[in-house]
Amino acid sequence: MALDFEKPLEEIENRISELKKLNEKADVSFDTEISALERKLRSTSKRVYSKLSPWETVQIARHAERPLLRDYIAGLCTEFLELHGDRCFGDDQGIIGGFATLRQHRVMVIGHQKGRSVEEKIEANFGMASPDGYRKAMRLMHLAAKYKLPIVSFIDTPGAYPGLEAEARGQAEAIARNLTEMSLLPVPVIVVVTGEGGSGGAIGIGVGNVVLMLSNAVYSVISPEGCASILWRDGSKAPEAAAALKITADSLAEQGIIDEIIPEPEGGAHRDPNAAIESTGDAIVKHLRRLKKMSAKRLIDHRYDKFSKIGRFKSRK
């Protein structure tokens, strides 16, 4: 499935496969044409992917084949004991979590799950969690604190679910409580933005000692579409809004919001999911090793300082 800006690449790829088919049947050889096209493909893809617009990056971050939380768990964890329920109301599927052994480290994994199949997507509300999801996540984080387990939180959501039931059960309260209580967790908290970091729904599990981000992930105060419809009064101006909001990994690193960018394979994580998942694992383990050496008090202070520093304002008497 090619995105709009990937069409030139798809054309070259199609021509290569046509020639390869002809090569098998015909007497003449197309080998030179094929290798020329392959060179062209490499240079074109370098050109296309090296200067993606923020809006094109959003398309990659939302790509249907992009690795999801369960792919990361399968790729990085030798064991995953999923734990269910918020002990209040239900077991939201928009956020999942449980004990996990991640490259030999026992940790608590939590994160948004968008779902792969249509059934999964509907069950998970496309990764838009309900208050029950945020409360389940907090319950698991308190459990991690009790067992002195580091927490690894994977963010990939369009936003918290905007629904009648979600409001009635306190979407605002659930997110607010997580922000407050996460700031006091006495264990390392590593946050990885793997796809879409959608607003309050993202930061609701995003208060980490370190915040990592895949190179084609985005993290934003509001969706580009939402911003465009409010500030441009025209949802189709989403590309402009995406640029103005500065939501790409590079921009967030410049703004001091994230600590490290995890490189993705050329074209995006979906082009080589295993490579993206392994790089993510490397980055997580690197920070785990460092943070595990810090005392509980130091971890809490470190997290407080990290967030209390964020802000760009002027001073005027």
Partner: peptide
């Protein structure tokens, strides 16, 4: 949150709650 300051506005939620 004030959209005009982008992600930094979102982070103020965590900052104030801390």
């Amino acid at each position: 949150a004030r959209m005009h300051e982008g992600i930094i506005s979102l982070m103020q939620m965590a900052k104030t709650c801390a």
